[in-house]
Design a protein around this nucleic acid. Sequence first.
DNA 1: GATCCGTGAGAAACCCTTTTCTCATGGCCA
DNA 2: TGGCCATGAGAAAAGGGTTTCTCACGGATC
Lengths: 331, 331
Amino acid sequence: MPERVTIYDVAAAAGVSTATASKALNDTGRMAVETRDRIRRVARELGFRPNALARSLTSKRSFTVGLLTDDTYGRFTLPVMAGISEGLIDQGVSVFLCTVEDNPELAKVHVDAMLDKQVDGIIATGKRIDKPLPVDLSHLPVPVVYALTVGPGEAVTLVPDDDQGARAAVEHLIAQGRRRIVHVTGPGSFRVVHERAHAYAETLQAAGLAVDDAAILRGSWSERWGHDAVATLWSGKDQPDGIFCGNDQIARGVIDALRERNVDVPRDVSVVGYDNWEIVAEQTRPPLTTIDMNLKELGRQAGLALMRLVNGEAVEKGLWKLPCTLVVRGS
Amino acid sequence: MPERVTIYDVAAAAGVSTATASKALNDTGRMAVETRDRIRRVARELGFRPNALARSLTSKRSFTVGLLTDDTYGRFTLPVMAGISEGLIDQGVSVFLCTVEDNPELAKVHVDAMLDKQVDGIIATGKRIDKPLPVDLSHLPVPVVYALTVGPGEAVTLVPDDDQGARAAVEHLIAQGRRRIVHVTGPGSFRVVHERAHAYAETLQAAGLAVDDAAILRGSWSERWGHDAVATLWSGKDQPDGIFCGNDQIARGVIDALRERNVDVPRDVSVVGYDNWEIVAEQTRPPLTTIDMNLKELGRQAGLALMRLVNGEAVEKGLWKLPCTLVVRGS
DNA sequence: GATCCGTGAGAAACCCTTTTCTCATGGCCA
DNA sequence: TGGCCATGAGAAAAGGGTTTCTCACGGATC
């Protein structure tokens, strides 16, 4: 293991003091151009990289943030984390990852460890928007941002705009000339189910289409449920010509069931999913038209918002609803 | 934002020097028991927490490790990361998360940022065992451990024992009295496909059962493929009574297809999956018997191995194959 | 009563970098 | 020729801890 090169080494090699070396490398202070260039050249030759710890000690900024999640399996958290990491690296910020499950003591240990390490701020993220993390982050000495999980009212919280997403899905179906549009979605215990269902109903109404409570079918987030829902729908009369599904798995079940009944998608029925889970959406036959929540972008924004708070810049408090995108494929 | 309490505050409040305060709190040095207790009590009352940055500066240990991943969607990486985080927090170690996708420049920036922050070591992990990260980690000033991704030969690399896992699956089928066992698996371009297929064949042979190359069906990692494979298998004569699937999604497709054909699982055919992806395995009807790769445990071990390297303890180099577990459910 | 030694605590140095303050130098102006 | 000022660079302190070394004190020993 090679010894690390310190600024003392650079200063000695360039024949100057560490003060001068520091100023040369940070482009501060006043000095002859030749001196600055010489020091920089020496530093480069020696492969000098400043010790961020020592630097943080004086600057009071560690260029480090903590990321708390209660999710170990979900597929929503990873893109959010990737977005955070990607959005912050430009500013030289690194991200501490902490998985806390539902364990309050563990969460506290992690938060304390992060604070001891002088994180500049903390991002809380989770597997379910309507479930808070098992730890109170509201009186910390650093700013906190919430992404994909609820925070206290006065906090900055970023979530996908379910209303706009659902609206876009239904509007797309209407634009395809569909008039009898049903909504097959997940369990009523999820907040997103209500929001999407509400937006669905409003959009129909705005288009002058009939809204029927029975046209909202709640079940589980599974292919099976999509399959079963089609069985129910096609057992009565008055079959729909458009189906807005609460997620891509349901949509896939719906499409498979339709094909089994020789109902052509998209000729006879148009289907729109939710999530743009590529491994599902692209495998469907035909490939699934669906709503992308832009989770990576959400993560990036969360990171940037946190840095603005850290820098003392003004940030609008409250719920930020980030736009979803309709991804048109073949269904 | 409350001001942070430093050891100077503690020392002043207790009427001692910072040297004495430090020794009292770290249980080092010699001093009267009353002095030590008094300092500790004062520290507790003031809510003193040492600044880890300042501490790291002298100790040369940051109690921080870097975690590199190229995965932003996969479902394998998250449990590994959770295991690492969980395994290291006991030692007060925090984990820097870096997502590098397939971008070598980005990866280099992240690695440099971590080294600047004086990480004690680095863990590389990825979405696919047979694909390396887009950055060379072999000449770093800190130790490196690879988990779920290939490292150079002399490195410590942790992967699930696919041989043992596949063996356990097939042995379970044999123990159920099955004799005509086929293997429906993923694309031949994946190394795990070869390993599992090889173990499958060997286990059959060891049990004195016929091994037929045509009994290994390679396709995609999807339910659809499981479905299609059953269609193929049941179109000929000589149907199998046991099916070992390359992952849970395939297994689910297989089981669904069997039910559609009125083939009873597990009465007529036993099915074993791979991955123990609970959202799939538990939703299957009947619930899926499958192989759990214990990824969280793998992550934990990776973290512990890295800390042993950091502490200069002996660690066996090379490939560590960690045992998989058969999870018996209803199939 | 002088010497010795163990004890408890503090002074100071160190980790690495940044930043403020000071100072020597030399050119310019009066 | 003396005083001023701009310039370039270094000394020193700070940041928050840890660690080594030193020292004052009091009791035991001879």
